[in-house]
Nucleic acid binder design. Structure first.
Length: 592
RNA sequence: GCGCCUGUAGCUCAGCGGAUAGAGCACCCGCCUUCUAAGCGGAUUGUCGAAGGUUCAAAUCCUUCCAGGCGCGCCA
């Protein structure tokens, strides 16, 4: 990483200056050295603002400190040998670096060496992370809001894995309790009605239309054998069969979205093993419960919540919080370093309760973090379609996937900041144009692939109609590919990508500068839990590639060194686009 | 009333302690005999919701206020 090399350079300069007593009373660098990329080209390729931060500590002016550091930097081998061509001090005290071309071409080589691992990081330190997401009730189809949580969880998992965490992905299935009982009643009623019995459909349950497709499958699988059942047994049996089918639907749909969970954790399994009772016992043993009004309460208020919470109702039933206590007891006992739950923002009111119960169980609640996702608004034909279960205008995830495609769904749900509501424009997501970023990035990848194909394909001369031979034989290209990532190939191989013409050079350089940024983008995204940054990065890279493409011919049969170097650059670009796309789970097509 | 989230270009949003606040859309003007014009370039656009404060430096951090969304059950 270029930034790390520069950081190292500045740190060494500081140490030497300090050794020579030119840093006042300072015994060590009191501020982290940060290398940034200036917005303006006249500020150089990279810049360091450390002098501004040191001014107070060293009781000196930023400019003066910057000048001293620059003086030492100028004596290092990197500036002596031309890796850095210019070190400049600028007001109010920035040190600006201008790079020579060798550090840039090193980047291309590194990408060829590391390939799909370019950008991979170790910040995670092999820590074990559990990410629990979607966790929808198995009582119906998933809607677009579930999709948002699904994509965020999936991207975060990919990102964390790439950043050096050990990630597990889990779906918590709420397959017990009141809503399941209601499902059973509705499903059985629907079942009977489908099979010709004139019974009334429950008025307060799930809408019959939302259940009918699943009940059809129950009939397909089991026939009419459940008609003879009555009462609770009927509801439970048909309910379970329906539940199973719904869960399979959810599983398939999420798989289509590119999501595969390591574990589907069933709530009813907790009940079957008396895990909820166990959890309650621990809470009571730890003296965090009391009884009042015939109910069992958690002393949540003294654990940071705004009020106490009921664990066991006066009816004898457990609340969701009691079940969650048992579930999270299980999670904590599995020994993760970090557990992330992804919830819809409408559930944020439960966060303090869950945190409180975790504390009461005797665990470090900091290890459990809840990430909230805001609402998804859909625009169709310029009009906002608002999600509302009541009004039955919920837009289903599979509908959107069918309409705009899996890649666009993933891109638009991944790209946003979870704290902000999304305005998902269905028309935009379908467009095969630059204005659709999802398309634009894939197009850039396909364009790279296309150029690489052209290198070994014969072409037709437009004027004469004659066939021209392929610029390279397959064998030669293979040979090139070997050299690109080989440690003993010509170190100046990639210098040929550059043009003398500054108008062309700038785009060639910009492309490489973008490429080299992937590792830090991955790291920033990982430490901030914002996989969406990679979407923006990929978009910018795509844009930079297009500009390069406009200015720089790659396939030049009569200039082998330049063609060789640029093919290597295009390959590297394709690789980096693919690596970024992989994290957000969008496919990287070779043709469009 | 209390809590959480959000207020940045006409629209959708990046940026979240650094040098003249950025993209895309929309609008206007250019560019196809050349590896995908499914593209590229140029022009225009701002009291960064408001007021105080901290800092050499604030869209970014703190406080207060204003506006919008969501949540405040022995529902999940």
């Amino acid at each position: 990483m270029i930034k790390e090399r520069l950081k190292d350079l500045v740190e060494r300069a500081f140490e030497q200056a300090r050794f020579d007593k030119k840093m006042g009373e300072l015994t060590e660098c009191p501020e982290p050295v940060v290398i940034e990329q200036p917005k303006l080209p006249e500020h150089g390729d990279f810049a360091c603002g450390i002098a501004l931060k040191l001014a107070r500590h060293a009781r000196s002016s930023p400019i003066q400190i910057a000048n001293i550091l620059a003086e030492y930097i100028n004596q290092t081998p990197e500036t002596m040998n031309g890796s850095i061509t210019k070190v400049e001090v600028a007001n109010p005290g920035f040190i600006n670096f201008r790079l020579g071309t060798t550090w840039l071409t090193d980047v291309i080589k590194e990408i060829h060496i590391r390939k799909e691992d370019f950008g991979r990081d170790t910040v995670g330190g092999d820590k074990k992370v559990l990410i629990e997401y979607v966790s929808a009730n198995p009582t119906g189809n998933l809607h677009i809001g579930h999709g948002r949580g699904a994509v965020l969880g999936s991207c975060l998992s990919n990102l964390f894995a790439f950043a050096g965490y050990k990630v597990e992905q889990e779906f918590y299935v709420n397959d017990a309790g009141a809503q399941i009982a209601s499902l059973g009643n509705c499903a059985f009623a629907c079942y009977q009605r489908k099979l010709g019995k004139d019974v009334e459909y429950p008025s307060d349950g799930y809408p019959e239309e939302s259940l009918i497709e699943y009940v059809d499958q129950v009939i397909e699988q089991y026939g009419s054998q459940f008609l003879s059942l009555t009462g609770d047994e009927a509801a439970v049996t048909v309910g379970n069969a329906t539940k199973k089918i719904i869960q399979e639907h959810q599983e398939k749909l999420l798989e289509r979205l590119g999501i595969k969970f390591d574990r589907w954790f069933s709530e009813s399994s907790l009940h079957a093993q008396n895990k909820v009772d166990e959890a309650m016992q621990i809470l009571t043993d730890n003296n965090f419960t009391y009884e009042a009004d015939g109910a069992l309460w958690l002393k949540a208020k003294e654990l940071g919540d705004e009020r106490d919470r009921v664990l066991k109702k006066s009816t004898g039933d457990y609340t969701y919080l009691a079940n969650d206590a048992a579930y999270h007891l299980d999670k904590f006992n599995r020994g993760y370093d970090l557990m992330i739950n992804i919830w819809g923002a409408d559930h944020h009111g439960q966060v303090p309760g869950l945190k409180a119960v975790v504390k009461a169980l005797g665990f470090d609640s900091e290890k459990l973090q809840v990430l909230l996702t805001q609402i998804v608004n859909l625009n169709r034909d310029g009009k906002a379609v608002r999600m509302s279960k009541r009004r039955g205008t919920v837009v289903m995830l599979d509908e959107v996937m069918d309409e705009v495609g899996v890649d666009a769904v993933r891109y638009f749900l991944a790209e946003s900041n979870p704290n902000n509501p999304i305005n998902f424009d269905l028309e935009l997501a379908k467009k095969q144009k630059r204005e659709n970023p999802s398309f634009y990035i894939q197009y850039a990848h396909a364009r790279c692939s296309s150029i690489l194909r052209k290198a070994v394909e014969p072409s037709i001369d437009r004027e004469s109609g004659e066939e021209r031979p392929a610029p390279l034989t397959a064998e030669m290209f293979e040979q090139f590919k070997q050299e690109y990532g080989s440690s003993d190939s010509d170190p100046n191989l990639f210098l040929a990508v550059f043009d003398e013409d500054p108008d062309k050079f700038i785009h060639q350089k910009n492309l490489i500068m973008r490429l080299q940024a992937l590792p830090e983008e991955v790291r920033d995204a990982a430490v901030n839990w914002q996989p969406g940054r990679l979407s923006h990065y990929a978009y910018e890279l795509a844009n930079t590639l297009q500009k390069f493409y406009e200015e720089s011919q790659v396939i030049i049969p009569d200039n082998l060194p330049v063609m060789k170097a640029r093919l290597g650059l295009v390959m590297a670009t394709r690789q980096v686009l693919a690596n970024a796309l992989k994290i957000i789970g969008v496919s990287a097509p070779d043709r469009m």
